[in-house]
Write a protein that binds this DNA or RNA. Structure first.
Lengths: 244, 244
DNA sequence: CGCAATATTGACCATCATCAATTGGCGTGG
DNA sequence: CCACGCCAATTGATGATGGTCAATATTGCG
């Protein structure tokens, strides 16, 4: 399983290879920053940040707390993601990033980014691209929350997660480690914990998936994709074809 | 009411003023393209685009059709918006843009954008910023669909729309023209038309708003914001303070 | 072996969808 | 100027999806 920094460098070359000095420059501004343990925030809401955060290993999520105590998770973030990249441009965080498991993270200072994007326009484009894919995923979630029922939402999430984790070497064959509580899935899908549980049980009963501990096995890809109305195009991933 | 191109140029300077030659360059690549009438698509899903579209006047929406016939609207787009800006970087459209009213549009070719962003990094940054604000709005909608009930969703949408339209001169005092059918509001908020109607009636009955034809008057700002859990920060607008 | 966090299940309830009319506004042809 | 027709808004009746509350079972772990 590759470390997040290599994943990032690789991903930034989806559009076209970067030159050696560009890669070198990128590598040089990624500074390992240590570990954040589960349930702690990697990025706080509202603080004016001076750096972005790269996830080297572990699972995180972007979320927002509501006045009434509810929580909406906007995205799951995995190694190679820079969940707060947008702070480089917008200058402040409008939501928090929390660690769902223990996470190794690295910092990329805004100052360094400033330099490097000034010097290498190709890197600017690649980063911009990253942030647009992030937005495309958010729109797909929006579609799900607005117009898909619980069964389809869970199926869709599993498909998406499989694809994204496969791309960073965190899924083998038909199995993915998904160290996320049902309560967290519920907060991502706009459902209650109870209903997520029932829905996953139904998916098991229908033999689309099986799960144990934190790992999910996909038993019937075709059926799962259909149930979730899943089409990987929006992930804009180089290998966006179907895995089967 | 300013035309969309001036709105755009102005908005691109939120972070800092552009130089005269930068503005000149921007102006020069905006080519008026005519009118798209209601219910027609401004941008088709899946076509490889060679230009972006600026809305000069009128109302549009970003949407996606689902296999089961449903529709999810991801965003309402108003004069000054470039709804398909992301195609410049990602190279293809993963959803359609439709005209909700007759729209005057202009085209900005990818080729010209290529030139201008290469020449003026400040413009690149400003455009990147635009696309990030777009994403921030999508996340806020995500929060609403996931965790707010119908009453709060409608209230929130009205607050948001008021702010955005005020910024482009399409709202006066407490009134905004919102030429959107209830069925379209429903598709944006993940509700049924019937329920949108009932909810708006309730908002009227509670004297938070009144509406007639296509225009909405906000009768009680404080209550409306509270009901919608609305905080304009995510709009990243220069005048993001409260309007009252 | 016992605790604490999750997962699971049952019973009951609320929000919101669906189906089906009815009403109202407004442009058009006579 | 008025009748017709269409589209959108409105309202009522009924039902389903998913929420809430409350136990009970598992599982990981010290």
């Amino acid at each position: 399983m590759p470390q997040g920094n290599h994943v990032l460098i690789e991903r930034l070359q989806t559009d076209g290879p970067l030159a050696a000095d560009e890669i070198q420059a990128l590598m040089s501004i990624i500074r390992p920053r240590g570990q954040v343990s589960r349930h702690n925030d990697i990025v706080l809401e509202g603080t004016p940040p001076d750096h972005c955060t790269l996830i080297l290993s572990g699972f995180a999520c972007r979320y927002k707390l509501l006045p009434d105590g509810g929580r909406q998770i906007h995205a799951f973030k995995i190694p190679g993601d820079v969940p707060d990249l947008y702070t480089f441009i917008l200058g402040f965080t409008d939501h928090a990033i929390g660690a769902l498991t223990s996470c190794d993270v690295a910092a990329i200072s805004h100052h360094d980014l400033e330099q490097i994007t000034r010097m290498f326009p190709k890197i600017t484009r690649a980063l911009w691209r990253e942030s647009l894919i992030d937005a495309a995923i958010a729109r797909e979630w929006l579609t799900g929350l607005g117009r898909r029922d619980a069964y389809a939402r869970v199926a869709h999430l599993i498909c998406e997660q499989y694809h994204r984790m496969k791309a960073v070497g965190l899924a083998q064959k038909d199995m993915l480690e998904f160290p996320v509580r049902q309560a967290e899935i519920a907060d991502a899908l706009g459902l209650s914990t109870v209903h997520v549980n029932r829905t996953m049980k139904t998916l098991s009963r229908n033999r689309l998936i099986s799960y144990r501990n934190q790992s999910i096995t996909i038993l019937n890809w075709q059926a799962l994709q259909t149930a979730g109305q899943f089409d990987p195009a929006y992930l804009h991933s180089p290998d966006a074809g179907s895995p089967h």
